[in-house]
Amino acid sequence: MEIIELISRILGASVVFATPLIFTALGGVFSERSGVINIGLEGLMIMGAFVAIVSNLTFHSVFGAATPVVSLIIAMIVSAIFALVHAVASITFRADQVVSGVAINFLALGIGLFLTKQWYDKGQTDFIESPIYSSNVPLLNKIPILGDMFFTGWYWTSYLAIAMAFLVWFIIFKTPFGLRLRSVGEHPMAADTNGINVYKMRYIGVMLSGAFGGLGGAVYALTVTHNFSHGTIVGQGFIALAAVIFGKWHPLGALGAAIFFGFAQSLSIVSSDIALLENVPSVFMLIAPYVLTILALAGFIGRAEAPKSLGEAYVKGNR
């Protein structure tokens, strides 16, 4: 039964790293499907992590056991509002979306660290007192094999992330709202002609990406790091962006890609346990997600087709 124990260990570690990526990648899907490139996912995660940690520290005594949930919600709301900056710049002021996203990343880190210095008088915050704990799902964890693999020692946020991916899939592909969102990203002029408010849809797309990106960063902070510093979010946002593209701008594809990237990240940690991978230098494990993304983009793993008008500002009346 050693092999099952090993699989459940790898699976558990993968899912811990994958969960924040899933949330953030879903946010990326919303934004990019509406035609707005979001390089700023990293910054949105930073904002989410910062807000979650601060609200967790502040409201710990008020909400008690409910603190983690409250901090996740606050992080989502603040990050959605923060994403407005990207929306205003890239949709209304027609700024280059990539540049605006880069600025978001700078701005989030600057604000986070500035306020940390301001409020805690040091480079990082204190450690939070009510993080999210891993737990077993009652009854289901008694199922032989499957119970060990999927229902033992996971964080509840992981189940939420997977459920959310299916929900987002339903919203984007099975509801009128999703159809409008996609049409705005593919051919905004045609959508406008049909009476869809292009600007409104794109604002909603970017703000949803803020909410989900913030949730991703918040989950990472509350499950993995437990405090906020300059090193809390280092590149997870960009991996989430890679997951969006690797998953071909599809929510379920992004889910799969995020789990794969989580697996790749966990491998560099648990590979010492696996006889087959013991001799592979860890650097190959570390660069694997990025190399695979490039290969995917180059069309070696099926062609990835971006939304048609991704990255183009929509100017009413222009042809």
Partner: peptide
């Protein structure tokens, strides 16, 4: 870190 914020805002203003 105030300077990071200033630089980020300058990028925004140039981009916009």
């Amino acid at each position: 870190e105030l300077v990071e914020i200033i630089i980020a805002l300058i990028i925004f203003f140039v981009a916009s």
